[in-house]
Write a protein that binds this DNA or RNA. Sequence first.
DNA 1: GTGGTCTAGACCACT
DNA 2: GTGGTCTAGACCACC
Lengths: 137, 137, 137, 137
Amino acid sequence: MAFEIQILTGAGVPIFQQIVDQTRLAVARGTLREGDQLPSVRAMAERLVVNPNTVARAYAELAREGLLDGQQGKGVFISKPRRQVYTKAERLRRLEPALDALIHQALSLNFSADDLREALDKKITQMNLPTGEKGGH
Amino acid sequence: MAFEIQILTGAGVPIFQQIVDQTRLAVARGTLREGDQLPSVRAMAERLVVNPNTVARAYAELAREGLLDGQQGKGVFISKPRRQVYTKAERLRRLEPALDALIHQALSLNFSADDLREALDKKITQMNLPTGEKGGH
Amino acid sequence: MAFEIQILTGAGVPIFQQIVDQTRLAVARGTLREGDQLPSVRAMAERLVVNPNTVARAYAELAREGLLDGQQGKGVFISKPRRQVYTKAERLRRLEPALDALIHQALSLNFSADDLREALDKKITQMNLPTGEKGGH
Amino acid sequence: MAFEIQILTGAGVPIFQQIVDQTRLAVARGTLREGDQLPSVRAMAERLVVNPNTVARAYAELAREGLLDGQQGKGVFISKPRRQVYTKAERLRRLEPALDALIHQALSLNFSADDLREALDKKITQMNLPTGEKGGH
DNA sequence: GTGGTCTAGACCACT
DNA sequence: GTGGTCTAGACCACC
């Protein structure tokens, strides 16, 4: 399973955040392992059709966390062993903006709480989100 | 039950947005009814310790939605409730991006479907969203 | 045919309204198409010799209608056209007050029905309103 | 036929203007004649459910035009013979705000020019507006 | 007194 | 660089 990042624009979550979160998840899952090389800033930017500065910012954030190691002129490498999972509080904190945006939109469109739950369930089924057991793999 | 607005500064939510949302909620819940007069722009600004322009912006947004009616020299009043302003397709279309973003973010953060439902329910309770058949504009 | 906006100051029509209306017209006529980028807030402000806030307000209004999409740090773009945003009832309901006011005013000024039709036609021609089946959002 | 004023709020035309226009029309039509007494400011305000200041302003405007004569403590009287009609240009000028409001609303609701003409015709029929011959009586 | 608009200038987050 | 928000202060028309 290759290391793929999906960027979804248009609703609250900044692009650089999405890169950070998904990279972090890949490490936690073992898709990326210590020593693996990441695409260069420019390559990644091209692949995601995104501004290079945005990728640079994401890499910088990951480096600051100690997850990445950017070696001048050589490339960017994963520097930490896996299990770099966010704490539950941190995961919730990062989910919140999207949650707030949804609630706000539902409110302004006069959806009731039940409408909202139903719409979410439908979408979950449609996108085939993993249910139940935590952690996945 | 008086019409009270609580402004939380420092969070990511714009002030005018908080005014809009809370007013909308008050109308949806029946706390505010047709014909009720809202505090004047200046009065509300003073009460919330906020710039009058910010309040005016919130009122303007609500007026555009048809929820409020600002009458020159008189004041701002709750207008006749309207049902089904947007077509059903439009309502869903407008909710979808936020829904997609939430699911996407949940995936990036390794939330399960149940985690996600739980987080949403918590948020719904916390914001005290109107349930079921009540009100509606 | 370039996208040009003409601001008439001194008339009763607010500047931001003129920007909104003319942009809407350009989209309705096809002068502006999906994906087209608009001048930045600051650029447009400079071009029209107007305060940036005024342009921002106009753009915000158009974004709320779903005609525009403002992307942080990138710019403002024309979004996917939408059909039938409002229910038919809502569209008529929103047109009615203006229609009533016009007839009422015509009566007060002793205009005949034909005078009124003629005045409307003249205004339609003058504003170059899109006719019939073209465009639509 | 009594001297009656109809106030229509909610679309562009100021209340005091409506009083001025309709009073002027009544004089032109002969419904009001030289020497006739108008209701006092307070009485008129009460009848129209309107702020006395608004009536006072309308009366002041009519007095300024020489149509009315306010005699301190006695009342307000018509002071000019009939045929005090507006010039055609003036009538059009006074119709314009309502016309603009209609066009603007139609534009923002994506009505075409034909839709608009049709809606106006329907309203004209519905309200039984006098057709053809100018001037009425 | 009221709402509505505009300007000027500042700050923030994202690209 | 971009858009988004907020403040401060001013002016206008209307009630």
